[in-house]
Simulated scan of single mutants.
Amino acid sequence: MADFWQDRDGFWNRGGWWRALLVTAAYLLVYLGVGQLVGVTLGHMIIDGGPFASATNVIIELLIPIGAGALVILVFLAAIGWITPVFSRQPIGGRPWMWLAVAVVAYPIIFRFIGIDYGSFPPGVVVVTLITGLFIGIAEELVTRGAGVALLRKAGHKELVVAVISSALFALMHLVNAIGVGFSITILVLLVYTFFFGICMYLVMRVTGSIVWAIVMHGLTDPTLFLSTGGIDTAVEGAAENIWLAIAATGNIAVILFGIVALFLIRGRVLTPVAEGSALPA
Rank of each mutant, 00 (worst) to 15 (best):
D3M: 01
Q6G: 05
D9L: 07
A25F: 15
A26H: 10
L32D: 03
G49N: 09
G49R: 12
I59H: 09
I59Y: 06
I60L: 15
E61I: 15
W82T: 02
T84L: 14
V86H: 10
V86F: 11
G94C: 10
G94V: 06
G94D: 11
R95Q: 15
W97E: 03
W99P: 01
V102R: 06
V104F: 08
V105Y: 04
A106F: 14
P108T: 03
I109G: 04
F113K: 00
I116T: 05
G119F: 10
G119H: 12
G124A: 09
V126E: 13
V127G: 04
L130D: 07
I136M: 05
V143R: 03
T144C: 15
L151W: 12
R153Y: 02
G156L: 10
K158F: 01
L160Q: 08
A163I: 02
F170D: 02
L175I: 14
I179N: 08
V181L: 13
I187T: 12
V189F: 05
L191N: 06
V192A: 11
F195S: 05
I199R: 00
L203I: 01
V207F: 11
T208M: 07
G209E: 06
S210N: 13
A214M: 07
M217Y: 05
G219Y: 04
L227N: 03
S228Y: 00
T229G: 01
G230T: 04
I232N: 05
N242S: 03
A246C: 00
A246Y: 09
V255E: 01
L257G: 10
I260S: 04
T272A: 08
L280S: 12
A282Q: 00
